[in-house]
Design a protein around this nucleic acid. Structure first.
Lengths: 224, 224
DNA sequence: TTTTGTGAACGTGTTCACAGCG
DNA sequence: CGCTGTGAACACGTTCACAAAA
């Protein structure tokens, strides 16, 4: 297990979901081809990804569903719980706090902060909104989620770093600067809309890059 | 302007934002180096990206801020308005409908649909929630946004396609199947959390791929 | 001199194709 | 035979480095 590419890690998340589904269906083994099919990628890609982490499959048989699922869960760090806080008690903050799926995956959004005096003290999805000035290391947050307006985002990022978070998930449409020791991920909805707009605008002019269409492999046996 | 890569289009969105800021600051010209600095990429990348769309710069001077901004706006298809609808009147739907930024970029979220009888008829961010069964081609939606629970996502995607949308933005954490003629983009918050979790889990073991750190170019003149 | 535009070099991720094992 | 694991080939995106233009 040497250097793992980021796209590979993202695919791991997908494999994990498929495996959860397949496990629920009661299947015991799954082939790289079947795993790939649900994902829209090639079976070679699946095998490459998995083999870069270890030898999880059995030649001639495929992968043991539950075993592989557990291995991936551990690889992704989902076999533990993460303490996270949300900064920004607006619409997005509320949406995040209200979504049960995160807790199911081990992400506990245990606190909400906001700078707006009108919001402080009110309850949002069961958590009392605290003033952002109270953000400190003694709460032991490992992850900070930024759900503020753009103008506040960098300032909040700095505060989160000062509070000792190891990772930040940023929902504000702005590139943030954080020290190398802090991991940053961004969800940029505005950019996604714009990327869609670009694709639609250029779609009829020859289907340029309008959608990352991925051909399924020919599926027949290799010629010659 | 031949084949444009998707990463290149996404960077275009960033350039656009920087140019809006810089234009507001009253600057007339900007160099590829300055554009790159705000973005954390190399100036060569900026020039490559821009030159793949046309010759917008002037050697020795840089790029004219307002002109380049307008060119990119047109390239991204932001010089027009898009009719979009949101399916799913839950937290995420509400967050999207409540965010003014989309309208500012030309995306009009003109309607909300939901399958839940309790929600239908209620008002959400100024729009009356309509039954998802009413979704039809006569509303002329160009873009459909899926903000439903996972289990409903594929069904809703099919309905949107039937209603004639050209593009779909999916917020449900599930791979969707749509015809090639429809462009699909996905915002997967769950995956983003998991990617963060992976990075944090493996961070101390040698800083593998924990954060896509991009070095600024050496900045000195080329040696030799 | 400054800074763009771009072919060439490079690096990285994906696909192929087959050896190896069950 | 079926299917994984993997080196080799390939495709693609990024960076370099320099000629051309202002």
């Amino acid at each position: 297990m040497s250097r793992i590419s980021e796209p590979s890690v993202r695919r791991l998340s997908h494999y994990y979901r498929v495996l959860e589904e397949v496990a629920a269906e009661g299947k015991r083994m799954i082939s790289s081809h079947l795993l790939a099919e649900r994902e829209g990628i090639t079976s070679a890609q699946v095998r490459k990804d998995l083999s870069s982490f270890g030898s999880f499959g059995r030649r001639g048989l495929g992968y043991h569903v539950e075993h592989l699922r557990d291995e991936i869960r551990a690889l992704l760090g989902l076999d533990r719980r993460w303490r996270a806080c949300v900064v920004g008690a607006g619409h997005i903050g509320a949406a995040l706090l209200g979504y049960r799926g995160f807790a199911d995956q081990g992400f506990d959004l245990v606190a909400v902060f906001d700078a707006d005096a009108d919001r402080i003290g009110r309850t949002l999805e069961g958590r009392v909104v605290r003033p952002v000035s109270q953000l400190s290391a003694k709460d032991g947050f490992e992850i900070g989620v930024i759900a503020t307006p753009v103008r506040a985002a960098q300032e909040v990022a700095d505060a989160l770093v000062a509070a000792g978070v190891q990772g930040i998930l940023n929902f504000a449409p702005r590139k943030l600067r954080v020290p190398d020791s802090v991991t940053l991920r961004a969800v940029d909805m505005t950019m996604e809309f714009e990327s869609l707009s670009y694709a639609l605008t250029h779609a009829r002019a020859g289907r340029l890059s309008a959608g990352r269409v991925r051909r399924r492999p020919p599926r027949g046996r290799p010629r010659a």
